[in-house]
Design a protein around this nucleic acid. Structure first.
Lengths: 195, 195
DNA sequence: AGAGAAAAATAATGTACATTAAGAAATTAC
DNA sequence: GTAATTTCTTAATGTACATTATTTTTCTCT
């Protein structure tokens, strides 16, 4: 079944009966996206929030100097979107781009609002989902300020081992907040110290 | 009335009738705390989540080198706590300390869980509160990685003008992620450039 | 009000990282 | 399947910030 993964994801926090499941699924649309294509570009209004069924995407912004900073990598079973733009319907500050051919389930802002009316249980689902995301972002925000680039890289490897060989070093560098050149140097140093 | 502020805060997102208001208030306890005292120390279990009725506190951690990093300043009408520890009931990674004599309303973990059972509307309140916090933390996390210390300071001044003269430069430095010495230098440079 | 403590300013030196540039290796595309 | 593009490596030089130390200013306490 096509919606197995998303329903299982939701069942972590709330229980839906068959009718609720059907209603929920009717609010979603599927979308396939080719590697390098964009789900969203800076300046556009984020009309959708996404659940990744397959593939890998990055959500990033470009600073005033033209450097790319990756906020998160989104893989199967993750939620993603430009939350600020989606909620406020103001222009996005982020790009969302596929790193592999990917498949997502998207919910429009209208249907998102409708969802809470029709199935109030989803307030609870998102309350818990956001609570957990907050813990992650608070930690990451602290780490970005208190750890050296080397420690941020080692943390990344420890926390997301499967991503290390799935996304390019250039992208990992943009995630941990260093240049690709410096990350290359760090990796050499780390490899040498292991001998 | 003592609970005016918190009720008004909650009414931003949900409407409570008199009975619900009374029930909610019965789940809270008041606490006064002197300047420099702690609501929570690293290693303790966070038994409470806090609403600040009066005063100013900081939530911070100490890194492996002994440096202090401030996650947030909490003033009147703000919510605060070590969310990870409060939710999971595992040892806290943060300290919460009063920067002024302060008054808080606290809710215990047991009452927090009870709240959602008794008044499910609170799922919605926290869903929206967390959603908004997430937007803030995602932005801050990006800024910590992409902006220079000078820009982070200028952003702080712009975003929290009332805090600039309320908390010490040492604390502002610990919030934006630089040493007090370097912030002092930045301020001098900024002041010179204004002439 | 005056002593002691903490915060802030200034300055010298050190280091983690950026920038620039060039070549080698890997991927992509026709 | 080879050219073109992108990624990765290496190295030289530059800069934003840390560290340490000293002095001055402000705050705290009795």
């Amino acid at each position: 079944m096509k919606h197995q993964l998303i329903l299982k994801n939701i069942s972590r926090f709330i229980t839906l009966n068959q009718k609720e499941q059907d209603l929920y699924i009717s609010l979603l649309t599927e979308k396939k996206i080719k590697k390098k294509d964009f789900l969203l570009r800076k300046g556009e209004i984020a009309r959708y929030d996404y659940f990744i069924s397959k593939g890998c995407l990055k959500i990033y912004n470009i600073d005033h100097k033209g450097s790319e900073h990756i906020t998160m990598f989104a893989v199967e079973n993750w939620w993603s979107g430009d939350m600020a733009s989606f909620i406020t319907q103001q222009p996005a500050t982020y790009f969302i781009q596929a790193l592999e051919d990917s498949e997502v389930l998207q919910i429009s802002k209208e249907n998102f609002d409708l969802l809470f009316e029709k199935i109030p249980k989803f307030e609870r689902f998102y309350r818990i989902l956001y609570q957990r995301s907050l813990v992650t972002y608070i930690q990451r925000s602290d780490q970005n300020i208190s750890l050296s680039a080397e420690d941020r890289y080692l943390n990344f490897v420890k926390k997301y081992p499967s991503l290390v060989n799935r996304v390019s070093q250039k992208n990992i560098a943009a995630y941990i907040g260093v240049t690709a050149e410096f990350l290359s140097l760090l990796r050499k140093k780390i490899a040498e110290n292991l001998n």
